[in-house]
């Protein structure tokens, strides 16, 4: 009898978690989380997913117009091997914030290297997800900004699960890369289920996904 009770409550707990996750996915994909539910007074703790090469340049270009008093502090998360992006971020922050220095750079293991097969990337992704959990538990950002490098997938997933567990209330904003005019990237295709806002840079993508936003030329 007691074994049955434990089993039943276990199943119940799993069901509850699944319901919560499906509820959130539904809320996100129907566009109910697009605009924040209340007026925000304090600065938003921002996590920026930085990827390789073109993604980094694009992201920093977008961020150039942001009011950093509103988006502070900023945590840049990037792959451990990415020296070039590191230098770009430091140069960008130095120019934009002068002495404020309200930013941090955090490095994580790569989830998928360029040209790595989809199959083996499953394992590297699991590893980088496990690596990111303690970091995300500590940070609990108000906003995640990402534009499609592999590093953003584990980060967004954990943020989503923490949101499902009522641990943090993170808004995920995904900007599809400028290169993508007709089809979503792999990251985009995954994030359409969990990102609160999806911004695309070309009208054909807006036609593909109703809840995506197109606000004209960004770059």
């Amino acid at each position: 009898m007691e074994g049955n009770l434990a089993l039943e409550s276990g199943i119940l707990a799993i069901l509850l978690v699944l319901v919560r996750i499906f509820f959130l996915v539904h809320k996100v994909t129907t566009g109910h989380t697009k605009v924040w539910h209340k007026k925000r007074v304090n600065a938003a703790k921002t996590l920026v997913c930085i990827g390789s090469g073109g993604h980094t340049t694009e992201m920093l270009c977008l961020m150039a117009s942001l009011d950093f008093l509103k988006y502070s502090p900023r945590h840049y998360v990037m792959a451990r091997t990415d020296e070039t992006s590191y230098l770009k971020v430091v140069a960008f922050e130095n120019e934009k914030t002068k002495d404020a220095k309200d930013y941090f750079i955090r490095t994580i293991p790569r989830s998928r290297a360029v040209n790595q097969s989809y199959f083996s990337s499953i394992f590297t992704t699991i590893y980088s997800i496990l690596y990111c959990i303690p970091m995300m538990l500590r940070l609990r950002p108000d906003l995640i900004l990402c534009n499609g490098p592999g590093t953003c997938i584990p980060i967004c997933f954990i943020a989503f699960l923490l949101k499902a567990a009522f641990i943090c209330d993170t808004k995920i904003v995904f900007v599809e890369s400028f290169c993508r005019t007709q089809t979503f990237s792999l990251s985009g295709n995954i994030l359409i289920y969990i990102a609160d806002n999806i911004l695309v840079q070309w009208p054909p993508l807006k036609r593909k996904l109703k809840r995506a936003d197109y606000i004209g030329q960004l770059l």
Binding site: V35, K70, D196
Partner: peptide, 19 residues
Amino acid sequence: YPKPNKQNFSNYLNKCMGF
């Protein structure tokens, strides 16, 4: 190629975030 209005993205994000 037209120059982009850089403020567009900032306005968009501010609106999303409730600023």
